[in-house]
């Protein structure tokens, strides 16, 4: 993953010219970046200014600046609210279980795919396993409802055929997480494995040849050569996922949510959405968002530092 600043030192010091002359020489390059800078400024930096309403009682008539300050009231209200622990736990647990269940799969798949010698077979496999990634969240949730339907879904037809009871999956809170996680794996394992497969092309062939001469089996070579090759990629992806521990995607959960499974399916993102857009409390919604944003940033810094000291791999 290219989340790293370019090493600019040494490159920019090639020529020292006066600022005016540089601007004249390069003005077209500045013109090229101008539209993107303007848009990012408006749509990413101005909202950061707007975040002050987390500490205010936002009133549309008074505007962002004119609304009265209330300090940390909203954040305390959130922390003290009866939903707080439930929301934190639901968000954390769905991410945590997802990560544990789905993280190793693309790695294993990429190691298997890398061993396939028939080029056509390999390509067909890669093409097919990536296809589900292109299905939209809405359609994916639609497929989930179709497949798990109690009276009409194929999963229950099979259960019925095998002599089991039909299960109303979507109406049972305890099935919410498994369905969310399994469908997530099905949709994304192929896509994520591409990154590892790409990283595996960087394997040192000479190491393999040397290992063959030393009598290493293929399994040993996978374990001792291929796996260490993709280790930095694994760590970076793991880091990014850990940093997102409280940052569950809104759409899929929102769409899968039914009154019957709300007990486990209400997460911070869906709660914030309801507070802000169904309840109209913009300030409260913003303060929850800010609270989570800060926690996420701290998590990211912590995991990045751990990885830097242990493995010498860093996002920056």
């Amino acid at each position: 993953m290219t989340i790293r600043l370019n090493n600019i030192k040494g490159q920019t010091q090639i020529k020292k010219k006066s600022f005016a002359k540089r601007l004249k020489n390069n003005y077209q390059l500045y013109l090229m970046v101008l539209p993107a800078i303007t848009l990012v400024f408006i749509f990413s930096y101005v909202p950061i200014y707007g975040m002050q309403i987390a500490f205010k009682d936002f009133n549309a008539k008074l505007g962002i600046w004119g609304s009265p300050w209330v300090g940390l009231e909203h954040i305390f209200k959130f922390i003290k609210s009866p939903y707080f622990y439930k929301l934190m736990w639901n968000t954390f647990s769905i991410n945590f279980y997802s990560l544990i269940c789905s993280f190793p799969i693309p790695i294993i798949i990429s190691l298997i795919v890398n061993e396939i010698t028939n080029a056509r077979y390999k390509k067909a496999l890669q093409t097919i396993i990536c296809a589900p990634h292109f299905i939209s969240t809405v359609v994916m949730v639609g497929i989930i409802f179709l497949f798990t339907s109690e009276s009409k879904g194929i999963i229950n037809s099979v259960l019925d055929m095998l002599g089991f009871e039909r299960i109303p999956f979507m109406a049972k809170a305890e099935w919410f997480r498994p369905i969310y996680i399994i469908s997530g794996i099905w949709q994304n394992f192929g896509w994520t494995s591409i990154i590892y497969i790409a990283a595996l092309t960087g394997v040192d062939i000479e190491m393999h040849e040397a290992a063959i001469i030393d009598g290493a089996t293929r399994l040993q070579r996978i374990w001792h050569i291929n796996l260490p090759t993709i280790k930095p990629t694994i760590i970076i992806l793991l880091l990014m996922n850990m940093g997102r521990m409280l940052n569950v995607g809104f759409e899929k959960i929102y769409l899968m949510q039914l009154p019957l499974n709300q007990d486990v399916s209400e997460v911070i993102a869906t709660y914030t959405y309801k507070i802000a857009f169904e309840g109209g409390s913009f300030s409260y919604g913003t303060s929850i968002g800010l609270f989570i944003n800060v926690i996420n940033l701290i998590l990211l810094l912590i995991f990045n530092n751990i990885s830097k000291s242990v493995n010498d791999v860093s996002l920056w």
């Binding site: 909202p47 950061i48 707007g50 975040m51 309403i53 914030t272 913009f282 913003t286 944003n293």
Partner: peptide, 11 residues
């Protein structure tokens, strides 16, 4: 770091 959903909406 981003301003989040609600400030973007207001903007």
């Amino acid at each position: 770091f981003s301003g989040g959903l609600v400030p973007t909406f207001i903007l």
